[in-house]
């Protein structure tokens, strides 16, 4: 379910590191919790963000959620396709519906995030809480 090569945050963002570059998106759990996504707001290319800062927002009909940057760095690319096809986030959150690409400021930051196994457990725990 949750790709092994990704790193994850407690706020349900994923990060894929590729050398000095990172790709960021929201997880399948997050898209599911939000429901049908209708709008995505992303930062400008060139924006500098710190880990934990707001990167953008994802809106559904009934909810709006902020996306927090898992790591610090400079935004090099945003997925402009999402502005016309926000539904992609529901369809393919881990691949084609990535949100931004970022030039990592500190390669060590990614290591502090959850790995796929830990995140899967974290999500299972969350789901248990919900149904309790």
């Amino acid at each position: 379910m949750y790709p092994a090569e990704f790193r994850y945050t407690k706020d349900h963002e994923w990060l894929q590191v590729n050398g000095a570059m990172g790709t960021i998106g929201i997880t399948d759990y997050a898209q599911h919790a939000l429901g049908d996504v209708v709008f995505v707001e992303l930062p400008k290319v060139g924006a500098k963000v710190k880990a934990g800062e707001v990167l953008g927002t994802v809106e559904s009909v009934k909810a709006v959620s902020e996306v927090f940057s898992p790591v610090s760095g400079e935004v090099t690319e945003v997925n402009s396709e999402l502005s016309t096809s926000p539904e992609k986030i529901n369809q393919d959150p881990h691949r084609s519906a990535w949100l931004v690409k970022i030039k990592l400021a500190d390669a060590n930051e990614a290591a502090k995030l959850m790995d796929s196994k830990t995140y899967t457990e974290y999500v299972a725990e969350k789901e248990k809480e919900q149904t309790a």
Binding site: D36, V38, F39, E59, S60, V61, P86, E87
Partner: peptide, 10 residues
Amino acid sequence: GRLDEVAAAR
């Protein structure tokens, strides 16, 4: 009937 609010918001 129930309206397609998702399409309306997109």
